[in-house]
């Protein structure tokens, strides 16, 4: 099969994927998104040979638009543009999870700093202010007091890009110094790990310690439902433990990084990802 890999940077994740695809004898078409031109009807020539394109764009904006164009040409692409659009934006993500009845932290959105402050005061302290687009724990604010809230809101309103004026306020979840990252394909977990840190942010990109985690039935059910809620695909689903064996799903990521998980677990994550890509490509070829 010919698998197109849409990218702008070859991280360790993409290298693992490329190596696995090539070792299995697949042709790989590397698609540098920075060099592609997207016409309204004619696909870029580089796409013509691809049985399936896997979106590995580093930039969310490129991921959202490029998958939309590729899908419009009738070229199969994972994840789908619908999944990308939901996962790219935290407000959309939260709406999808809540709409599907998946437990997710209490969240409210406002468009002025005055109304955002009302939300923060009603949530109480600490609470969390997040950018609607962003990753790796960047620009996240744990707000401990009204004076901190006022300062952060003013900075965001004054200095920020217009998206920073979409104030996304979330309850602070008292998690046990760790959260859980699950990489799943169409709701079926490949592997899971906990990301532990004394810092309130437990992103692997922030230096959290990672170790393998065995999912129980409750977590597996939530992973399947969260995946369905955003349209399925290859996803990174983040859960927090809320005590007594329950969880809340705070985020679903659509261009999931898996190198940390591959190192933390005994499971060959890129091999399982390619298993799934082969299955999807086969379905598309038959269809």
């Amino acid at each position: 099969m010919n698998i197109g890999v849409l990218y702008s940077r070859i991280r360790r994740d993409e290298k693992l994927l490329l190596n696995e695809l090539r070792e299995r004898g697949h042709e790989v078409t590397k698609l540098d998104v920075r060099k592609l031109r997207f016409d309204l009807s004619e696909p870029p020539a580089a796409l013509s040979a691809c049985d399936l394109v896997v979106d590995r764009c580093l930039a969310t904006s490129r991921s959202v638009y490029a998958t939309r164009f590729i899908d419009s040409y009738g070229v199969p692409v994972v994840n789908t543009p619908e999944t990308a659009a939901v996962c790219a934006d935290k407000a959309e993500n939260s709406l999808a999870l809540a709409g599907a009845g998946v437990p997710t932290p209490r969240t409210e959105v406002a468009f002025t700093k005055e109304t955002a402050l009302e939300i923060i005061e009603s949530f109480g302290y600490p609470c969390v202010l997040k950018p609607v687009v962003g990753s790796w724990g960047r620009l996240m604010a744990k707000i401990d007091s009204k004076s901190a809230a006022e300062a952060i809101l003013e900075h965001k309103a004054t200095l920020g890009h217009y998206e920073h004026k979409v104030f996304y306020v979330q309850e602070f979840v008292e998690k046990p110094d760790r959260d859980i990252r699950v990489v799943a394909v169409d709701g079926e977990p490949i592997a899971a790990m906990v990301r532990s840190s004394e810092h309130w942010l437990t992103n692997a990109a922030k230096g959290a310690h990672t170790s393998e985690f065995e999912l129980d039935g409750t977590a597996r059910d939530l992973v399947a439902r969260a995946s369905d809620a955003v349209g399925g695909g290859l996803l990174g689903i983040d859960l927090m433990e809320t005590g007594s064996g329950s969880y809340t799903v705070h985020e679903v990521n659509h261009t999931v990084e898996f190198k940390a998980l591959d190192e933390a677990t005994s499971i060959d994550v890129p091999a399982r990802v390619v298993d799934w890509l082969e299955a999807v490509a086969t379905q598309e070829v038959v269809a």
Partner: peptide
């Protein structure tokens, strides 16, 4: 290498 952009991530 390109500088880090605000929408980079996963």
């Amino acid at each position: 290498a390109p500088e880090l952009e605000e929408d980079w991530g996963e």
